[in-house]
Structure formats: C-alpha cells, structure tokens
Write a protein that binds this DNA or RNA. Sequence first.
DNA 1: CCCCCGCCCTGACAAATGTCATGGCCGGAA
DNA 2: TTCCGGCCATGACATTTGTCAGGGCGGGGG
Lengths: 207, 207
Amino acid sequence: MSEPIRVLLADDQALVRGALAALLSLEPDLTVVAEVGRGDEVVPEARRTAPDVALLDVEMPGLDGIAATAALRAALPTCRVLVVTTFGRPGYLRRAMEAGANGFVVKDTPARQLAEAVRRVHAGLRVVDPTLAAETLATGASPLTERETDVLRAARHGGTVADLAAALHLSEGTVRNHLSAAIGKTGARNRAEAVRIAEQNGWLLGD
Amino acid sequence: MSEPIRVLLADDQALVRGALAALLSLEPDLTVVAEVGRGDEVVPEARRTAPDVALLDVEMPGLDGIAATAALRAALPTCRVLVVTTFGRPGYLRRAMEAGANGFVVKDTPARQLAEAVRRVHAGLRVVDPTLAAETLATGASPLTERETDVLRAARHGGTVADLAAALHLSEGTVRNHLSAAIGKTGARNRAEAVRIAEQNGWLLGD
DNA sequence: CCCCCGCCCTGACAAATGTCATGGCCGGAA
DNA sequence: TTCCGGCCATGACATTTGTCAGGGCGGGGG
C-alpha cells in the first residue's frame, strides 16, 4: 500500500473542523496534516505541510473559500481542492469551478461519502454534487454588472441610500439607478428581496 | 468503570452530524446511540433509544432546537440537553435556558472541549459559553411586542407592505405602524436593518 | 473613420415606506 | 368603580425609495 493521502482542513468553526478531522482520521489511507480557521491561512499552511488535498469551506473570515481556492491553485498547482459548503447555492459551485476547484460537496451529504470524495479528487477525478449541478446550469452566471453587485453588497447591512452613496462615492441618484437595475434583473420587488435573491444565488461573493 | 454515557445527536447537516459522531466516538466513555436530522424527530427517537444527553443544533427543519429542547424536557425529564449552534446570538442562549437546556455551546469552541461539555452536562452541571453569557446579560430579552415580532418575521422574505398586510390580515397602516415601532426599538434606520438586528439578537425564533 | 452597444452616471417624477396623532380594548392599581 | 398604562389598530402626512429618460465614455464591428 502506498503513502496515505495528506489532507488540509479549512473551516471557521473549530468544532466542525475538529469533528471533520476525527471523521477523516478513521480512514487508514487518509492523514489530516493541517487545520486552519481562516481563508488567508490556507496558502501559508499548505506551503509548510504540502498536502495532497485541501478541504475548504466557502464561508470563512479573511478570505472566502473561492478566493482561497484560486490562491492555492496558483501557489501549489499539484494540490487538489475539494470545496465544502453549508449552502447549496448554484453560484458557489460555478465560481468554485472557475477558481480551479476539483470537487464540490454540500454539508448535508452523508458523512460516509466524504472520505470517498477526497479519494476521488486525489485520483484526479472531478466530484460534484449531482443535484446542484443541474441547478447551476439552470440559474447560470450572475446577470449583475459590477457596480450593481457593489451596490447590492453594500446594501446588505441595511443602510439608507445616502449611506451607500457616501460609502461608494456616488450620487444618490446613481445608487438608486443601480439598485433599480438589480431589482429588475433579479425579478425582486424591492431592495431587500433583491439582496436576498442575489445572496442565495451566490452573486455577492467577495465581501 | 460505569456504563458509557448515551448520546443523541441532532443536526440538519448530515456531514457535520456524522463528523460529530466520529469525534465523540473517540471517547471511550461516550456512545452515540441515535442521530437525527430534523427537530421533530428528536422526541420519537429519544423515546426509542433513551439517551442520557441530547446534543441539539438550533437551526433545524421541522422544529428548531429551542422548541425541541422544550419538547424533550417535557417528554423525558431525565435526559439532559446540550444546545449547540453556529451563531453566538445572545437571544438563543436565553431562550434555550428558558426552554430547559442544561448547556449551551457555540460551534467555534475547540473540538476537544465538546466531550468534556457532554460529561459536565451529564453530571448535572450547567455548561455555558462564557463570552456569550456576558453578552446575554447586556442585550437582555426582546423588547419587541408580539405583533411587532410577527410583522418583522413576515418581512424577512422581503415582501411589500401590502403582502404583509394580506398575510397577517391587517390594514397596511397597522403594518406600517408595527414596523415603525420595531425600527424605533431596534435603533435601526429602516425595515431591512431592523430585520437584521432582530435576527442577530435571536428575537425572531419560531418561523 | 463612424456607428452601435453596453455600462456608468445623473436629476426629475411617481410610488412605496416610515412617522405621528388618535381611538378602542383589556387588565391591574387606586 | 374609575383611572391609568400598554398593546393593537387605523388614516393622514412627510420622507425615502424605485422608475424613467437622457447624456458621457469606451470598445468592437462594419
């Protein structure tokens, strides 16, 4: 039998991270060689420990999992990436794949399948949650323009138009116009709903 | 040495649930006797397996963890409850304790401490995340009246005032008034912000 | 070269939202 | 009993938000 597969774990919730480590450690052919809780710690730690596969959560402080995927692929091209996330948002899958991920799994897949997914990714295969794959094709990429995305992102916290205008250095009229466009494109009936829809589709990544 | 502690796990994310099971199974004095993915499966499964400690997530379909806690305490008073949650929302802790929980842990506590928390709860001690305890005292109970809470809950999805009025069988003026009151009490500057604040404080439980 | 198309920016107008004063209802205190 | 205070309900009014038409800028195709 060959060397065990070296795995790096990245998840912001320490409890979940530790639990996943315990789960994977049950498999004789897998070793967890590193654990990190922030996206910006992924690359430094990967350089140090040279993992074969990195298991990255999408929701992380510092750098989200998608950005961390891109950074890791650039820094260590031989390291495979398996993205894991809580929410089955179609946009996440698309963005993850564009960033160079080798696999994508949502957190409500059965626990027994995770080790198998790691093995498949390590073997060079692509692993994609099948239910999500169909949905991704249906919803497609973001229809939002760059500025519209900026404005929606800023609107998440619930400020007034004046606040957004100040934060983005735009006139209030402009902000209203971008919001209006975003509302139209998302099919929403007001700002709050547009934010919710865009967020659910994963169109607001990048803080 | 006495019998191992029997544990029931409830979490809607199968991967996390399985991982927690793996983590706890590493401890020789703990046995995971049941796993469920919905709040409304907790009591039936507990009746069947007679656990000593139930580990409940707050965010679950069917019945949230707080409601499940109350139901479980009523059905099997000898079973201790340890509530686990992703978000350290002060209101959650308060509500969980009022519902009869014996402990409360957030998911970014270190993994090693979970087994210890289970043991303490089983021994009859209370386990509370210390940082959260202070915050709870500071933010206190919800200042929102029942109707205000209803209206904010309905407003989460982002509908218009007309929608809310129809859903709650109220006049539009009334809905606006309740929203205005909620905005005032939360210190928000518009509806969306009020929803966000109330949600963060755990004042909107109960779907 | 010129045209066209899309994105960005802006102000004026219409529509929705938030505020306020008012009145009905109920339960506890005087 | 009567009064008081809190919650709920409602309509009129001011403010904010969403829509629209229009102009500037830059890249790609004819």
